[in-house]
Amino acid sequence: MSALDTGWTPPPQSLAGRLGDLFWRRPGLLVALMLLPPVLWLGIVYIGSLLTLLLQSFYSLDEFSGLVVPEFTLATYAELLRPSNFDIILRTVIMAALVTVASAIIAFPIAYVAARYARGKWKALFYLGIMLPLWSSYLVKVYAWKLILAKEGILTWLFAKLHISWLLDAILAIPGIGGNSLSVSYIGTFLVFVYIWLPYMILPTQAALERVPANLIDASSDLGGTPAMTFRNVILPLAFPGIVAGSIFTFSLTLGDYIIPQIVGTSRLFIGQAVYTQQGTAGNIPLAAAFTVVPIVIMGIYLTVAKRLGAFDAL
């Protein structure tokens, strides 16, 4: 075979080649060089900023001069426990918990049908039904709900058309969670939160359900299990890590959000809004910083528990 008869030729040498040799001989050097930019960026820009913030939470605000006193104190944290501030924390955590539970209940049938039954056209519809709300602009989604919940909006109209306006009025009359219209009530805030974070619950639940082998369900009914028993003993335990994974998103995102309650809801604050006002109009950076520590601590606890429940395998 004449074309192959030339014998082995070495590859051409070049300057880049020599640098390549260096990296080949010292792979650690290459890894270090690759990691340098991202570590500088995240380590200095991001972690540095977080630490600056954390440091601020140990300072306090001089009430007379309105200036930050750069001395170590726990007084700002003590301020979090004042009833007005503690209410904000409590309100936010309760809302986050309710939103999480509601999302799980609404998400499950969607995820279950999408994972087990949907095919062809229906599969496409489920895909769009989950992906479009997920990827659509956050503000546009909030805006859509402002349109829906407005006093003159589609929900009021729908209740009127069905001749059940009395029901809406009754709901709005409930003290505490009702209000003048849905768009200025806790019910409204809750509905929007659930809507916005629902896809984050559906996706991990669906992923967990997709991993349940169909023959496991067949085996259960084969062994005489009723559908309810199969659901409780086979499907739910296997889907549970997915639901916990989804709850990390719904819980954390609700804890930190400050735009939804500002646009749809009452004038009473959530943690995010408190942070925003404290650092903005009030100029009390230490208190704002202390407020941000609250969701960090709560999420830390939440993630530790979730890890024990095996949620990270379902992510």
Binding site: G48, T52, L53, S252, D257, T292, P295, I296
Partner: peptide
């Protein structure tokens, strides 16, 4: 972490 934490951390930095 919630976006507001990233935001305020960067702002204070």
């Amino acid at each position: 972490l919630p976006g507001i934490i990233t935001g305020i951390a960067l702002r204070s930095a």
